[in-house]
Amino acid sequence: MAKGKTGPVDWAMRVVLWLYALVSIPLYLWFLHHMGDRWGRQLPADDDLRFWLPIVVPLAAFSFTTMSSTSWWWSTEDRPFLLGRKDWRFMMVFVVALSLMAGFFGSAHRDVVAVLLTVMATTIGIAGLWLLPPALSPRLLDTLRPKKAPADLS
């Protein structure tokens, strides 16, 4: 495919990724804000976390996931970007743990249903955030293809 030209496959993939991102990311961030707020209301009235939990939890999830996924999508073995293809895992474990804690502690009923709904919202939201960088990429199909090592000319 010539540089700068986009074909029907590229447009179809871009539309699918954008539709998924437009639905999943706001829903996930609302979920984290709502559950962070409910979790904060359970804390003592003089605790500063009551104010900060609904703000910090969605911002941390958005920024850490986007940074990790951007690094993963644009890194190669030769050119590590930000965290590279190996060091992104710690931030994602943090985001998943934060999301699960917010969902569980913010739930009115702490049972299996709350855990399942939190796992579903976390999975859907993190997948949307993980696919956001390639959806924003002007060279979408090149971004999604596996990175190949240069051929040995000797």
Rank of each mutant, 00 (worst) to 15 (best):
V57M: 14
K5D: 03
G36H: 00
L129F: 11
F62V: 10
R139A: 12
W52Q: 11
H34C: 01
L144G: 08
G125D: 08
L153S: 11
D10W: 01
D37V: 01
F31A: 06
F64N: 01
R14K: 15
W72H: 09
L22S: 04
T123S: 15
W88G: 04
W73I: 08
M67G: 07
F64R: 05
L29A: 04
A12S: 14
L32M: 07
K147H: 15
F64E: 03
W72N: 00
L43C: 07
T143L: 07
S71G: 15
M91T: 04
V23I: 14
L141G: 07
R41F: 13
K3P: 00
L82K: 04
V9H: 02
D78M: 12
T122C: 13
D142V: 12
H33T: 14
W52G: 07
P44R: 07
F81S: 02
S137D: 15
L19N: 00
P26W: 06
W30Q: 07
F31P: 02
W30I: 08
L116M: 10
D152T: 08
A127S: 15
F64A: 12
T143F: 04
P80V: 10
V95Y: 10
R79L: 14
L136V: 09
V95D: 04
D152H: 12
G128W: 00
K5W: 10
V119K: 04
L98V: 07
A97Q: 05
L100R: 00
L100T: 04
G103Q: 03
S24T: 11
R79M: 14
A127Y: 10
L140C: 05
A60H: 06
L22W: 08
S137G: 05
A114D: 06
P26L: 11
K86D: 08
L83H: 03
V23F: 11
A97H: 01
I25M: 04
H33R: 08
M120F: 12
F31Q: 05
L141I: 15
P80Q: 13
I124W: 14
L17A: 03
P146R: 08
W30M: 05
S63Y: 13
F31D: 02
K147I: 10
D48R: 15
L132F: 06
L141A: 07
M67H: 04
